[in-house]
Design a protein around this nucleic acid. Sequence first.
DNA 1: CGGCAATACG
DNA 2: CGTA
DNA 3: GCCG
Length: 709
Amino acid sequence: MQRYDSAIDMTGSDRDEDELPEHTKEPTVAGPIGPHMHHKRPLSPVAASSSSGPPSRSASPHSVHSPHSAIHSTDSPPNSAGHHDNTTSPHDLGAPLDLSLLSLPPVAVIPTRLSPEALHDLHEQLSAANADLVTTFPSDGQTADIHRARFFLGQINTPKRAAFELRKLGVHTEEVEAGTSREAVWQDDGLITVVKVEWWEKCLEKDGVQSINPYIVYVGRLTEGPPGGDGKKRALPSAEELVKEREMKRRRILERAQGDAGGSDSRVKVIPGKPWTKPNTTTSVDEEFGVKRPKLMRKTTSEYEREKGLANQVQPRYVREQLKLAVHRPHPLHCPNDAFINVLKTIKLSRTLQLDDIGIRAYSTAISAIQAYPYELLSSSTLLTLPGCDGKTSALFYEWYNSSPDDVSQRKIQAVEEIEQSEEYRVMKEFYQIWGVGAKTAREFYLDKGWRSLDDVIEFGWNQLSRVQQIGLKFYDEINFIPIPRPEVARIGALVGKVADELRPGYEYIITGGYRRGKEQSGDVDMVLCHRDEEQTRGGFLTMLVTRLEEEGWVTHTLYLGRGGGFGTQRVGEPPRSHGLAHGEGAEELEKAMVMWQEQDPASPFYKEEGGRNVSPHRRVDIILSPPSCVGTAVLGWTGGTTYERDLRRWVEKRWGWKFDSGGVWERGSGRRVELGEWAEGEDLVQCERRVIEGLGLEYFKPELRNTG
DNA sequence: CGGCAATACG
DNA sequence: CGTA
DNA sequence: GCCG
């Protein structure tokens, strides 16, 4: 997978502010390459500004004002954007204004760092100037005839970067020594020239072809591409046939495996298809790009038009101040851009299944930023102003929005459609939804074992599954497809609390997770249980509790029972192990249990019976037992959402040099415990959590505003 | 170009 | 390796 | 993929 680092030399970018809220933001000087660069120019100024009329196609190239000598000369170092070479005329007063690129070799635009609009505008302008334009597409695509191109325009500042971007487009080059002189670049000598977009802006401004000298970034010579074809798919030999042969048998096994779990058939209908992890080569779409999209845009109001309507919309603080961490802004559960977020979530899941941790990060960041945005997004350039969103996100939005400007429900993105169609994605996703199976294992099931359905897993793999995976499979449908309504979550929490209190009085609990963040339905129940007397939170009380719940039938299976703060164990009285300190005796600790739960009370509204049998859906319940000394951090840590927690840790590290986890806050160097989150006298658990948040120097956002997606 | 949250436990 |  |  190609790394795409888009942030090199963001000269003039205004996105480099510190996110510390108390730091006053010094407005940085907005350079010419800021996110709104494309706004500076009307859509088709070239055509409009051809005061001398459109150049005739029949005219000899040489009759057109086009300072070859200037363009050819490469005597300026690639990065010397500073000095101006005026050996070739900007246009003289009185000279005919002329912006024809007829004599240019085939031109292409490097889409990197350009918004879709900017790219589109450039394409239009260049065509209008009669350039021999090879169109490029924002999302890493390449056109079939990209190899024709010899002259590239791009928001590129370094030769290295230029070579990299060219390679992404499928054009392999090696740098020609700066200063290498050439007589006539436009004879096809295999040389490639990369020039800054500013050159073209200058041309537009002066209404005439300008010297490219100060704008040359890179001159390269074409080389051989990478060896070999696209090392692609191994054929999965006989798995498919095996599947068919044994279909009947699998059915029986599935029923057996599902046992009392309801036995519904949960096999996927697999549509054989291409893998969704395609190489980044698209052709036809790109070919059409330059032609089609302008038409598409004009069907309704253009982005440019729509934006103007938003000009006086007050942007939320995190946008104005470019606050990049989720802990610094409110994220409501529902937002006006949920439909687009769902698209991003699909991509994120596909990245998860590809083990692309960084992709997951990136999409999570973008999603949370959009989740915090209070207005319906109408333009991809607005998206560019959100922290964590840049060219890629904006290009996705552009395609999505314009695929059906008038009907949100019809909007789609081709790449996402393909993901969702692909067998690989669908099957891996199904495996991934087995509790106890992560992305790595889902891939292994699909790629190595060759399994294509849950039936396959059960028939061919049952004995290799861990115990919890077997349980996860047994309750697959209930866990994944029967969400828990809020009242039932509350009921489960209350029941656990009651049983705890019956064992030993004085326990208090709070339901955390998605429920606390306001979700109408939950996938599981998370709760933090605490006692003011620290003694009551140790000595295996959680085991006692779970045992009692088992005896009474509420807990049907125990997936995990042990100590754990973040997930596993953290000693609360001491720094985490990563600090190199040994565990001490009698340390306080967070304990955690993960169980399957089933309603047992026939009088309960959540109880379901069939043929005298309890068929209430099984529920996943996590119980965290916290000592009073860290219950504030436990509640904060278990409330989420995921991106909030991530950014919380980043903030705590950056601002204080501390380490946050649900078992406490720690000084990084000494490993000393920072006293935060102790359950104070006369304080409830919510207040305790608030003290932690504020103690960390953060604004308190209620849990309903921590829905980071 | 390096970094991206966190980690004990089964 | 998977889990929250 | 985005940021510093």
